[in-house]
Computed example of a mutant assay.
Amino acid sequence: MNEFNLIQQYFSGKSFPRKDVILGIGDDAAITQVPENQCLVTTTDTLIEDVHFLKGTSAADIAYKTIAVNLSDLAAMGAEPAWLNLSLSMPSVDKLWLTEFSDMVAELCEYYSVQLIGGDTVKGQLSLTLTAQGFVPQESILKRSGAQNGDWIYVTGTLGDAGAGLDILKGKLTINDKEAREYLVNRHLRPAPRVLAGTCLRRIASACIDLSDGLLQDVAHISNTSDTGILLQLDKLPISPALGKNVDSLEKALEYATTSGDDYELLFTVPEEQKTSMQTTLDSYSIQYTCIGQVTGAAGKLDLLLNNQAYDLSSETRHGYQHF
Rank of each mutant, 00 (worst) to 15 (best):
G300Q: 11
G78V: 02
A30C: 04
R144L: 13
N2F: 04
T121K: 01
S206C: 05
E100G: 09
F11M: 09
K178D: 01
V270F: 04
Q138H: 08
Q274Y: 02
L142W: 06
A220W: 04
N149M: 07
T296Q: 08
G134P: 05
D27G: 13
K275Y: 14
E272Y: 10
V270R: 01
M104Q: 11
Y256S: 09
L74I: 12
Q133A: 08
Y64N: 11
T259G: 06
Q33M: 12
S284G: 08
M278D: 01
L130R: 01
D151I: 08
V155L: 02
Q33I: 05
N246I: 02
D61A: 15
T129R: 12
V155R: 00
A59P: 03
V270W: 02
Y264W: 13
D283C: 10
R181I: 02
Q322P: 00
T258N: 09
E272C: 03
L23P: 01
K19N: 13
I25W: 03
I62T: 07
Q217G: 00
W83L: 06
D20C: 09
E251Q: 12
Y264K: 14
L282V: 10
G244M: 11
I117Q: 01
T290K: 01
D177L: 07
A205V: 00
I168M: 15
Q279R: 10
I22Y: 12
L54D: 06
L250H: 11
K252F: 04
S223P: 02
K245G: 04
A310T: 15
Q309C: 07
S286A: 15
T280K: 15
S206R: 00
A82L: 04
D213I: 08
I25Y: 00
A147H: 06
L305R: 03
I7T: 06
F16W: 13
